[in-house]
Design a binder for these strands. Structure first.
Lengths: 253, 253
DNA sequence: TAGTGGTCTAGACCACTCA
DNA sequence: GAGTGGTCTAGACCACTAG
C-alpha cells in the first residue's frame, strides 16, 4: 500500500488516511487478510498512533475492518444481511427462526419497556434471553419482556428459570393471536453483557431493534435486540436477505 | 454533578465516567442545558481530556448529548422517531411525505446501485437529491437513482437539471405501478456532502437506509438515505403490504 | 513470552462561534 | 478576542492472544 505522503491540506489527517486505507483495502487486500500492526502503519504514514487509530476506528465502524485485541486487524467480509421484518406474522420462537433461546428469569424491565407494556414500573415480567447466529457468528443478543398477563396459564408448567422455562413462556405466548408488530431501529453501544455475547468489547456500536408485539389490542410483548453494527445490515420488508455465500447450502435441521 | 471520585477498578475509566455522566444527565440536567466545557469536566473528574472525550463521544453516539464546535456540549432531547416503512405503497415524492426535493442531475451511480438497477456500471441515471426535515431539523439526506427506462417519457418536459427537473422525474416515476419496496439499514459515516446537509461534521455516524422500489418485475429506482444516527430512531411500521385490518390509524408525526 | 490492540496522559495547535 | 470543541503528538502501561 505504499508510503503515500499526506499533503498538508485543511482536511483532517485521519480523514485522508481513511480514504487512502480504504482504497488500499479495495485494491491490495482480500477478505480475512491481516494488516500490519498499528505502530507500523502509523510509522509508515508518518502520523501518531492515535491518529492512525482514528482512521481505523471509522473503517471498523463502516464494516471494512475487524480488530481483535491480542490478534490484529483483518479485512472484514461484506456485511451480512439479516432479516428483521420478514417473519411478519410470527411470534418470537416460531418455527424456522434462527434464534436460540438461552434462558429466562423474572425481572423488572427498564422504565421505557414497562411503559410500552403498560405494566407498573416496579413490576417484574418474564425476561427471556435469546441470541441469534448467522453463518456461525453471533449477530444479535435479545431480551424479550413478556408480562404475566400475556401468558396466564404458565403457572406450574416447568422449571422456574432456565432454557426450558424460556421455551415454555414462548410456547404460551404463541397461543395469542398476533395482530401486528412495530419495529424501531436506533444506534446504541453494547452493554457489557450484550458485548460478551456478541464477542465484542463493551461500548461497541450496535443497532438496537425494538419490537412491540400487539395482540388483543395491547402490547403483549416487547423485544429489544442488539445487532452488531459492524457486521450486520438489517433488512426490512417483503423478501428479506437472500445472501450469496459460497459453500454448501445450510441444511434444514 | 459533584466531584465523584473514580475508584481504581479494572473497568476502563471512560466507561465508568460515561456511567457517572449518564446518571448526572438523568438527575441533574434538563434538555438543552449546557454542560461545563471539556477541560473543566476533565479536571473535575481527574482525567485527561482525551479520556473525558471518549466518554462524551459515546454519550453523543447514544443520543444523550449534542456537541457543537465553538459552542459547547448540550443535553440532547430524546431521539425523534422517523417513519421509514409506513408509506409502504408510495413512490418517493408522493403527496404528504416530508421530503424536500433539492435538485437533479445525470450521474453515474455507485457500482452497487448500478447492479441493483440492472444498468451498466458506466451508465448515467437521473440522480435526485432530497432532504428530510422534522421539527425544523434536518434528519436525512437522500440520493435517488432512477434509470432512464423508468421514466421514458421525460424527454423534453422541463429544464435539464434543478429542482423543477427533479419534480418532473418524480412525477413521471409515479405513473408506474409500485409493487413493493425493500429496505435495508446499516451503520455508516457521513460523507462530506451529506454531513454538510445534516449539519454535522464529516464522519458523523449515520444510519444508511437503502430502498429498492420494485415495479414491473424490475428495480425501478433505488434510494440511499442517510439519517443522523444521533438524533433519529427509525420506525418501520408492520402493515406489511398485504394485510389491512381496521383499527386505530397510526398517526404520523 | 512476544506481539497485538485498548486505555491513558499532558501537553499543543487549529477551526469555529459569538459577543 | 475569548472560549469552545476538533485534531494531533509522543510517549506509557495494560489486557489479551497465541506460539
Amino acid at each position: 500500500m505504499g508510503t503515500t505522503q499526506l499533503e498538508s491540506v485543511p482536511e483532517p489527517k485521519y480523514w485522508h488516511l481513511k480514504t487512502v486505507l480504504s482504497e488500499a483495502l479495495d485494491s491490495e487486500f482480500s477478505v480475512g487478510e491481516i494488516l500490519p500492526n498499528e505502530r507500523d502503519l502509523a510509522a509508515r504514514f508518518g502520523v501518531a498512533r492515535a491518529t492512525l487509530r482514528q482512521a481505523l476506528e471509522q473503517l471498523e465502524l463502516e464494516g471494512r475492518l475487524q480488530r481483535r485485541r491480542g490478534v490484529g486487524t483483518t479485512v472484514a467480509p461484506p456485511r451480512v444481511g439479516v432479516a428483521v421484518g420478514s417473519e411478519q406474522q410470527a411470534w418470537p420462537g416460531a418455527a424456522g427462526d434462527d434464534w436460540q433461546t438461552v434462558d429466562c428469569a423474572a425481572a423488572v424491565p427498564p422504565a421505557s419497556v414497562a411503559d410500552a407494556l403498560g405494566t407498573d414500573r416496579e413490576q417484574a415480567v418474564h425476561t427471556v434471553r435469546r441470541s441469534r447466529m448467522t453463518h456461525g457468528q453471533p449477530v444479535a443478543a435479545e431480551l424479550l419482556y413478556i408480562p404475566e398477563a400475556s401468558v396466564p396459564e404458565l403457572s406450574a408448567i416447568d422449571a422456574p428459570s432456565g432454557a426450558a422455562r424460556a421455551r415454555a413462556v414462548l410456547r404460551e405466548l404463541q397461543r395469542l393471536e398476533l395482530e401486528s408488530r412495530e419495529n424501531a431501529v436506533e444506534l446504541g453501544s453494547a452493554r457489557a453483557d450484550d458485548a460478551k455475547e456478541l464477542d465484542r468489547l463493551p461500548g461497541a456500536p450496535v443497532l438496537v431493534v425494538t419490537t412491540r408485539y400487539l395482540a388483543g389490542g395491547r402490547t403483549a410483548a416487547v423485544s429489544v435486540a442488539t445487532y452488531r453494527a459492524d457486521t450486520c445490515r438489517l433488512t426490512f420488508g417483503d423478501s428479506g436477505a437472500v445472501e450469496i455465500h459460497e459453500g454448501p447450502e445450510r441444511q434444514a435441521s
